[in-house]
C-alpha cells in the first residue's frame, strides 16, 4: 500500500513537470502535447492501442521466453563443457560487439515483416545478459560446497545439478531482470524497421501523419506494459529464490519507527 502510494506520488510529480514544460514553453500540441491531450488520445484510440499493444506484448513475451531459455542453456553449456568455455565464450562476447540495431534490417529481410523478425531481435537482446549473469553465478559456487561434494563422491554433473545451478539462481534472476527491462527495446526496434502491427509500427505510422498525441499515447501504453512486466517478473523471481535475502529491503523494513 505504501509502495503504491509512493508510485502514485512519483507519477503525479512527473505529470506535473510535463504539464509545466508544456505551459512554460507554449509548445504547440503537434510538437509536445500535454498530459491531458495524451490521455484523451489514449481514451479515443483504446481499441487501436490495445490491438497493437497485444502484438508487441506477444513479441516481448516470446522473445523473453526464448531468449531466457537460450541464455540459460548457453550458460550451462559453457559452464559444464570445457571446450565450449574456451571456444564459445569469446564468440559470445564478440557477438555483443555487433549492435542489434544495425542488423535489424537484415533480420526483417530474412524473417519477413511478421512477428518472427521482432522475436528474433528481442531474443538477441535478451539472451546475453541472461547468459552472462547465469554463467557468472555458475562459476562462483562456494569452494567449500564443492569440496564437500567431492568428498561425498559426487559426479561433476550432479555437482552442477544439485549445487552450482541452485547456487547460481539469484545471479540468473538478476540477468532475467535486466533482460525483462531491455526486451521491449528489441521488439520496438524490430517494428520500426518494418512491420504491419505493433506499438512501434503505430508510432511510426502516427509520426508520418503528425498525430503526435497518438505517438505519445502509444509510448504511454508501451511504458505501462514494460513496467507491469518488470514488476511481475521481479515478483516471480523473488518467490522462486526465497532464500536470497534482500538486505537493502530488510534494512528498509528495520528502519526505526518515529515515536
Amino acid at each position: 500500500m505504501k509502495a503504491a502510494l509512493r508510485m502514485a506520488v512519483v507519477a503525479a510529480g512527473l505529470l506535473l513537470v510535463w504539464q509545466a514544460v508544456v505551459s512554460a514553453t507554449g509548445a504547440q500540441p503537434f510538437i509536445l502535447p500535454g498530459p491531458l491531450a495524451v490521455a484523451a488520445a489514449v481514451a479515443g484510440h483504446t481499441g487501436l492501442l490495445l490491438s497493437h499493444a497485444g502484438t508487441t506484448l506477444a513479441e516481448i513475451l516470446l522473445g523473453l521466453g526464448l531468449g531466457a531459455a537460450l541464455g540459460a542453456f548457453s550458460a550451462l553449456v559453457i559452464a559444464h563443457v570445457r571446450p565450449a568455455r574456451l571456444w564459445l565464450l569469446p564468440v559470445l562476447v564478440a557477438s555483443q560487439a555487433v549492435p542489434v540495431f544495425a542488423i535489424a534490417p537484415v533480420l526483417v529481410l530474412w524473417l519477413g515483416y511478421g512477428m518472427a523478425s521482432k522475436v528474433a531481435m528481442a531474443v538477441l537482446i535478451i539472451f546475453f545478459p541472461v547468459t552472462a549473469a547465469f554463467y557468472d553465478g555458475l562459476s562462483r559456487t562456494d569452494p567449500g560446497w564443492l569440496d564437500l561434494a567431492r568428498s561425498m563422491g559426487a559426479s561433476r554433473w550432479r555437482q552442477l545439478l544439485r549445487l552450482r545451478i541452485p547456487a547460481a539462481l539469484p545471479a540468473c534472476a538478476s540477468g532475467l531482470r535486466v533482460a525483462t527491462a531491455v526486451a521491449p527495446i528489441g521488439a520496438v526496434v524490430g517494428e520500426w524497421v518494418g512491420a504491419s502491427a505493433g506499438l512501434g509500427y503505430l508510432m511510426l505510422h502516427a509520426n508520418a501523419r503528425m498525430q503526435v498525441d497518438l505517438i505519445f499515447a502509444a509510448l504511454v501504453v508501451l511504458a505501462a506494459m514494460a513496467l507491469i512486466l518488470y514488476f511481475t517478473v521481479d515478483r516471480l523471481l523473488r518467490l522462486a529464490v526465497p532464500w536470497q535475502v534482500d538486505t537493502l529491503w530488510r534494512e528498509h523494513e528495520k528502519e526505526p519507527v518515529e515515536p
Binding site: M152, A154, R158, R162, L163
Partner: peptide, 8 residues
C-alpha cells in the same frame, strides 16, 4: 541427505 542426492 545431501550425500545420497549428490550420488544419485
Amino acid at each position: 541427505v545431501l550425500g545420497a542426492r549428490l550420488r544419485g
